[in-house]
Design a protein around this nucleic acid. Structure first.
Lengths: 333, 333
DNA sequence: TTGTAAGCGTTATCAT
DNA sequence: ATGATAACGCTTACAA
């Protein structure tokens, strides 16, 4: 592999000059630039990124920590980050945090030890205080799908409250009045906000908020099954079920079917996130789109802007959920 | 950040000695080792991985190219690679190839330019010749889910022929005799092998192989729909449909239902891959497990063994598919 | 067993 | 505009 030194010899200039034409920073006369470029081409010169990193103290790489590397949600996010960053010549190192505080911290440490120029984080277990302290450190962090007030400029989040509102409002507009709600763990900010939106939609339409029609469960298939079992036992005459995510919705659908309910005629269901399998379900699940891919892209752009000083057009910190209407809601009007 | 130099000062030894205790390679007396370790702890010393890379000409990182970063299939694979490698202190750089020859090559170039110590590849568009040539180069490559004879030691693959055989044999054992088969694009080796297995199962059970019961389509939902439409038009009395992957199976299920077929009573369906959403479908899809996660892990182990010389127990190059029996096959016996 | 010193391939600060 | 030259933080012969 040719080095900068060999290029400088062939072009009969100094190392410094070659470095200059590479970075395009300082001014170099057109003649010398051409000489150098010719020499580079002739030698098939490719800069050694590691040497660059050592000398410049920038690794040209950004770390990304997600809860799980598999899973539709994170896939979309990583995909958004990677495409944007690679187009800019940076590379991304991935690590998993497994929604566990110790593992998340360990993952972050790992990424820092790799000298990432920035770290994009999707963390669930770690506290706001930890993140604030982390942000004081050397390496810039960007938070995806999480809002920490003191770190607003570093956050990209979804308006979960509006999403929850939208889901329930959709049911109401389809003529539903008795609406059961499967909430996610109220320890998670997203879950809390979505539930809040649900209640706002109810209130806005003068519907009473009954605690008997709210059930808290894990963001998993099983959670949806438990919830529907619970509601069915209470024997409320609900016609619609709003689920705080698609997995729960899928679980509820299985459970409903195995208990003789015809979907969507006997029960309308809506999910949240619009993960890939939502459209594979039967009936195809109506849901609230969570634009994770775009949020990943935006995280990458913020890094480009803030860390690499590449001007970006329209940085957006908050994203709006959107209704995806498929076949799981019966129209009662 | 403390450097090796400061550690050496504090411990009153030379740089070289500090380096030695870090790498644990050459012999160092217990006393000095302890002195050095104490100094490292006191200074909170963390080696600079970039400097290590430059000096040792190893980056301690491995590249991974997948077709798409999202998608259940690749998620599982990356997840397997990451967990195994991080446990060994290496990090992984991801890149997407988008099943396009130019983009795959570009991705590989990118990874090479990043000085990866090895590259794990899931490529679809690039030719065997290209891969063979690539393998002559500086950086070792591992191929996942692809078999190239000349590169056998670098390949990890699934016995797709057996998988196809297993799928059809399962249908036969459930009493089906008229079995339609939706094949993947016969330009892809996996698709060819799976179809071959299907035919073998038929032959072994003295069933005739009718070309009217074979349809080639894209590995997508839509492909499954087209296939079923085709078969239905021909009006064969088939009772079972074997699909070369789960997405096709999902499409076929949608189509079947929208044409009044009751599943699985009117039509039994089996898929291939066992992606996440297979268990979310209705009826839950019986399918052939494709152990991508394990294959990813194994790829990582091969790298650990061949590149980093960390002894691994049982390296396995070929994986066996397995039947996952759920609810989409009716028993005719 | 330990130390000395020459790289590794750049960037960046000075001069010129 | 260009050139010397000192970092950057570590590994690794080679010596001692």
């Amino acid at each position: 592999m040719a080095t900068i030194y060999q290029v400088s010899e062939l072009a009969k200039v100094s190392l410094a000059t070659v470095s200059r034409v590479m970075n395009g920073s300082s001014r170099v006369s057109d003649k010398t630039r051409e000489k150098v470029q010719a020499a580079m081409k002739e030698l098939g010169y490719r800069p050694n990124i590691i040497a660059q990193s050592l000398a410049s103290n920038r690794s040209l790489c950004v770390g990304m920590l997600v809860s799980e590397i598999h899973g539709p949600f994170f896939g979309q996010m990583m995909s958004g980050v990677e495409s944007e960053l690679r187009a800019a010549g940076k590379h991304v190192i991935i690590a998993a945090g497994h929604s566990d505080e110790a593992k998340e911290k360990e993952g972050i440490e790992f990424l820092i030890s790799r000298h990432c120029d920035a770290i994009i984080l999707h963390v669930e277990a770690v506290s706001d205080e930890y993140l604030i302290e982390l942000s004081q450190g050397e390496v810039p962090i960007i938070l995806v799908s999480r809002y920490v007030e003191q770190l607003a400029e570093q956050c990209i989040s979804l308006d979960n409250e509006y999403g929850g509102y939208l889901a329930t409002k959709t049911m109401i507009e389809h003529g539903h009045r008795e609406i059961a709600y499967v909430a996610g763990p109220q320890t998670k900010a997203d879950a809390v906000a979505r539930l809040k939106g649900h209640k706002r939609a109810l209130a806005e339409h003068q519907l009473t908020i009954s605690e008997d029609l709210i059930f808290e469960a894990e963001f998993k298939e099983h959670g949806g099954m438990l919830a529907l079992e619970h509601f069915l036992k209470l024997n409320n005459n609900f016609t619609a079920l709003v689920c705080a995510n698609d997995e729960m919705a899928s679980g509820a659908m299985s459970y409903a079917r195995s208990h003789g309910l015809h979907l969507p005629d006997d029960l309308s269901i809506i999910g949240f996130d619009n993960v890939v399998f939502a459209s594979h379900l039967y009936p195809k699940l109506s849901t609230i789109e969570n634009p994770v891919h775009q949020m990943g892209q935006m995280a990458a752009r913020i890094v480009l802007q803030q860390v690499y000083h590449v001007q970006q057009e329209e940085i957006q910190h908050q994203f709006e959920p959107m209704l995806i209407n498929r076949d799981s809601i019966a129209d009662l009007t």
